[in-house]
């Protein structure tokens, strides 16, 4: 546990010193959402109708943006090799790095999302559920993404490859995430959507690090 926290701490430390990943993800998220009123016109009803979907799609893309570098830097400078040789199991290494990735790129989205919801004229009743779906959903994005990042390690143009591998797997998260918000806005209960999202998270939590570690072992051979 101590080692796990040491690795999470180091990754957060690195992210804060470099400072780019966190700000790029959240800036991209904001800009992506802000583009929509320009594209579909400033009609408040249309914007309110599409707000949940737009925010969720932007969140998917923002989380994808920094995934390529999840293992890349450690792989290139030899740290990943050494991490795989410590007493910490490789599955825990993947989970620690994914947790750090979520804290750096996922959590800022939670903060920015309500502001963007105001911008898109979303009904106030959906704000709480929006943050809740993102709180459950963005860790899933990081977890599934870690598999893609591990699989494409060492491949040329890995970033494009990750998008092709991972975006289809993001679809259930998008459906239930946006569905929960729509349900809340139209006065229905978002509970089933949230439960399904939480179920996906509960499934990904053990499975994604396991798959990611298997992919890393391949890359390190």
């Amino acid at each position: 546990m101590n080692r796990f926290l040491a690795l999470v701490g180091r990754d957060l430390h690195l992210a804060l010193r470099q400072g780019s990943d966190a700000t790029i993800a959240v800036m991209f998220f904001v800009l992506c959402v802000v583009l929509f009123p320009f594209g579909v016109g400033p009609e408040p009803n249309i914007l309110a109708r599409i707000a949940a979907g737009v925010i969720w799609v932007a969140a998917l893309l923002a989380s994808l943006l920094s995934l390529e570098r999840l293992f890349q830097n450690d792989y290139e400078d030899g740290s990943l090799e050494l991490l795989s040789l410590t007493a910490l199991p490789l599955e825990a290494v993947v989970l620690a790095k994914t947790l750090a990735h979520w804290l750096v790129t996922g959590v800022p989205l939670l903060v920015a999302a309500p502001l963007l919801a105001v911008l898109l004229n979303m009904e106030a009743g959906g704000f709480g559920v929006l943050v809740l779906t993102l709180a459950i959903g963005t860790p899933i994005l990081s977890l599934i993404g870690s598999i893609g990042a591990a699989l494409t390690l060492g491949a040329r143009r890995g970033g494009v490859l990750i998008s092709l591998l991972i975006l289809p797997l993001y679809i259930p998260v998008l459906i239930f995430g946006a569905g929960a918000i729509d349900a809340a806005v139209t006065g229905l209960t978002p509970r089933p959507h949230l439960l399904l999202l939480a179920g996906i998270l509960a499934g990904c939590l053990p499975l994604a690090p396991w798959a990611g570690a298997a992919a890393l072992r391949q890359a390190l051979e």
């Binding site: 040491a6 740290s79 090799e81 040789l85």
Partner: peptide
């Protein structure tokens, strides 16, 4: 302990921080 061709030094961490991290992982 394995020392390979790559030095695994993080450019933004100080030498001591780099080394202390590996020491902590080593127990």
């Amino acid at each position: 302990h394995y020392v390979g061709h790559l030095d695994a030094v993080k450019p933004v961490l100080s030498a001591l921080e780099n080394l202390a991290f590996w020491a902590r992982l080593g127990g």
